[in-house]
Design a binder for these strands. Sequence first.
DNA 1: ATTACAGTTTTCACTTGTTGCAGATTTGCA
DNA 2: TGCAAATCTGCAACAAGTGAAAACTGTAAT
Lengths: 207, 207
Amino acid sequence: MQYSSGMVGLRERKKQRTRRALIESALRLFDEKGFEETTLAEIAAGADVSTRTFFSYFASKEDVVFYDTHERMELVRSLLVRADPGMSPADLLIRVVESSLAWSSAQEELTFEDAELRLRLILTEPTLQARALTVLFDTQLTAAQALHEAYADELSLIEASAAVGALFGSVKLAVIANLESNRSLEQIWDTVRRATDVALAGLRSLG
Amino acid sequence: MQYSSGMVGLRERKKQRTRRALIESALRLFDEKGFEETTLAEIAAGADVSTRTFFSYFASKEDVVFYDTHERMELVRSLLVRADPGMSPADLLIRVVESSLAWSSAQEELTFEDAELRLRLILTEPTLQARALTVLFDTQLTAAQALHEAYADELSLIEASAAVGALFGSVKLAVIANLESNRSLEQIWDTVRRATDVALAGLRSLG
DNA sequence: ATTACAGTTTTCACTTGTTGCAGATTTGCA
DNA sequence: TGCAAATCTGCAACAAGTGAAAACTGTAAT
């Protein structure tokens, strides 16, 4: 019958292994030869499955790079939805950014979990960049909605969107600027924290 | 030889006519049957050219929807680059938004220039939405850079990005929210103006 | 163990976007 | 009119993605 949460049959383990193999194969190839230059046949071959099988794990070639998007977004949403009512909106958003960074650092499931490389890939390949912007956009909408609901008395939806927009806008730029000047992830996170402070100055003044 | 600006030979006129025909054919079909469901062969047929020729006018199927992107971006850049030094950053950004709206309303070149329909198409079709976000992102980068340069003494690049992010973030949301509730373009523009005010409150308080 | 069933993978065929190339066609101009 | 450059077309080829049927493999019940 159905397993409720800890499906640990051979079947399930095999599926996870294949998924991982596909991700690692894809990322390794993208890194070596670039996204456009890598073919689905090659990715599949590297994971020892048929080309067709790739599509029962990922809906498209880009999707494989964003394998953890869903969890990331859930994290953001959950932090915003059950916000401590005592905390100011600005402080809450800061906590969201920090939790998000902490979560990234904590992910080590994959051999290939080199966050910096993935980031560089996304910033480099137009197709991946477009996909990242879509993900970010959805996150932004979710966050603005949640923030507005958490502080319905103080923040209109438009105001919440402005705050979130400021935050994401400055963080995006901080990441890009830093990556271009070849800094380590740690240095980048520092800049992101400063960008956050600046971005939220406006929100604080609304109080 | 080279014509400097007013190329009005038969050749050039014919090219413009074909370009227009392609845009109209594409938008009409996208509207009728959806973006994915429309084939390049159909678009080309509707404009009386071969499928191959489509690609000497547009680099991809999506591109045809964003035929005026370049001019739009030039408008934004030019407004920011030669800013009146007496104007505050917030007022300058407001002017940018208003000029942009005015420009949109003034475009009537195409039979099919139904701005609302194009907007709805972009918001509806994932592929087009992704493309739009890319365009918007580039504009945001350009604007932040230009704003920072125009007010180098007062605004760091991060601060400029935050301001632009707030502006774009709230405007995006205003557009979406309004379009979903089926309002006219005029009503949407009103909301955008209010969103602009809210978004820039933070920037004003920085002064 | 055997077997029937459901979930997975593979194979195959097909559509569509996109590109390179070579051979027409058309246009601008002397 | 006639040549050179710009355009357009048809064709072949490749990669992403999809649908459907056949082959394979855990799972669980007898």
